[in-house]
Design a protein around this nucleic acid. Structure first.
Length: 109
DNA sequence: TGTTTGACCACGG
DNA sequence: GCCGTGGCCAAAC
């Protein structure tokens, strides 16, 4: 715990994602102002290591469930999002722009 | 120990 | 509006 890896920072941000909202890799990377969106993907790749990290709320900038294949089962990601009231169309978030949430909004919240 | 890939994004042509 | 390239950091081979 003493060592705050980049992964931990990503987990923290993802964990702060409000219910029924989604964020993107770039938004997290931009908020952390560290590494890059690729690292965010790597961090979530170890989502199994993370505890209670709603990785299903993290999608690419297009709102596509790019990482759904990394879930178990893959349809779990879509299922969780729909469970939160988020409509998924063609493995993409409907009204993604509206549901898009930026970590920076935490200060505004 | 160096190369390749990875749940990506932004910019330029 | 689509395609190619660079960048970023870390783990796996």
């Amino acid at each position: 715990m003493a060592d705050e890896s980049y992964f931990d920072l990503v987990y923290e941000v993802v964990r702060h994602v409000p219910y029924g909202r989604v964020t993107t890799y770039g938004a997290i990377a931009d908020y952390l102002a560290l590494g890059s969106a690729r690292m965010v993907g790597w961090a979530l790749n170890q989502c199994s290591s993370g505890d209670g990290v709603p990785a299903h709320r993290v999608v690419n900038r297009l709102g596509e469930l790019s990482g759904r294949h990394h879930f178990n089962p893959p349809s779990l990601m879509q299922h969780l999002l729909e469970h939160e009231g988020i409509k998924i169309e063609e493995d993409k978030v409907r009204d993604f722009k509206q549901l898009f949430w930026h970590p920076q909004e935490l200060d505004l919240e």
